[in-house]
Design a protein around this nucleic acid. Sequence first.
DNA 1: CTGCTTATACTCGTGTGCGAATACTCGCGT
DNA 2: ACGCGAGTATTCGCACACGAGTATAAGCAG
Lengths: 214, 214
Amino acid sequence: MAKRRKVSNLLGLAVLSTVSARPMHPYEMASLMKARGKDHDMDIKWGSLYTVVRNLEKHGFLAVEGSVRDGARPERTVYRITDAGRDELADWVRELIEVPETEHRRLEAGLSVLGALGPDETAELLSRRLDALEKRIAGDRAALAAATEVPRVFLLEAEYALAILQAEADWVRAFLGEITGGTLEGLAMWRAFHDTGRVPPEIAELAERGAAES
Amino acid sequence: MAKRRKVSNLLGLAVLSTVSARPMHPYEMASLMKARGKDHDMDIKWGSLYTVVRNLEKHGFLAVEGSVRDGARPERTVYRITDAGRDELADWVRELIEVPETEHRRLEAGLSVLGALGPDETAELLSRRLDALEKRIAGDRAALAAATEVPRVFLLEAEYALAILQAEADWVRAFLGEITGGTLEGLAMWRAFHDTGRVPPEIAELAERGAAES
DNA sequence: CTGCTTATACTCGTGTGCGAATACTCGCGT
DNA sequence: ACGCGAGTATTCGCACACGAGTATAAGCAG
């Protein structure tokens, strides 16, 4: 059980990584993150940024370098990373890389309550999802291909995200095929349940047991 | 921009889906969810349960059916779903199925700050991750295969989760191969950066640009 | 040089997620 | 007949996330 982080918001990881280059003030961190596509994988919430920075400081991962007054601008507090901060950063990355998360995918949640929808509507929705997915995949793939001058080491996240997106699209396509093709086992039951609100009781019980794994 | 839900915690979705069968009190909902593998995809936080139920009630998706005193037990409040609740449930599922989420994967975050680790350590960590992933996949696959009496319609989430897990494992395996095989473009640079903390400045700039997609 | 927009830089307040504590009851072993 | 652990059912309170608001400065159009 990975010990709970003092600061658990992943924005904190991005902050640590960003200030590890040189001391800077919060707004600059955010700008830098935004400049590289960081906001793409992990969108930056302004409200959280300052809270997170303050917490990182409280736990000794950041220290106040000083504060700069630039003309009449509001005073900006400049932070630098501490040794503890570097350790935390490394340790955090290690955990993220080593331990496969128990992901909570939204589609998974949706699929688990599909009873609320009928098969026909589901098929319709899934086909829209598939369209969106395919557009996104095409766009991302093009962007990746266009970045020829950038060494691949810097594009790993994007490649990984693309692979997962692709797997999702494949799964959705296959499932959609089974609904429209009528080959899905239990399709009739699903339709009946949606129309009448009833499910054969012995089946209901099976469903309870069914998902209770390992 | 999918309109923000009044109650955004996905636990609320599970609650709505569970009480849609018949009125019940919060603890019973949780037990039911736990009984089917719901806690597997979406682990139930006791603290959140009562908050979420109260919020669902506040927004008119649940209504108090009454309260039952069973012997000397503390009084239990029984909730039933309202029409608005059924609408919300259906609408929510529609959104989850139709709209591909901007997922925030933890591995993605890790990969984006890999600079903090060297290639060798990364390879080591990834190979551990791969082991864990493969064990999990084997286990899930076996559980799925063992549930022959359960119609597939009830096992969709598990199948989907498995497909994604498999894609992750594949990607990790390929990436790991590139590190250990030395075929990863920019590997030398990565190693140099980790050892010396320096990166050729023109490359640094490229990296900034690189990830800034569409 | 005046008024508008956009960027800079941050603070505040609200809601809520959730760990931990509480308290009572039932069944089982001894 | 009694103590104890497991199950039942819920409350509390803190810390955190983050939307929305604030205020000033720079750029630029007319």
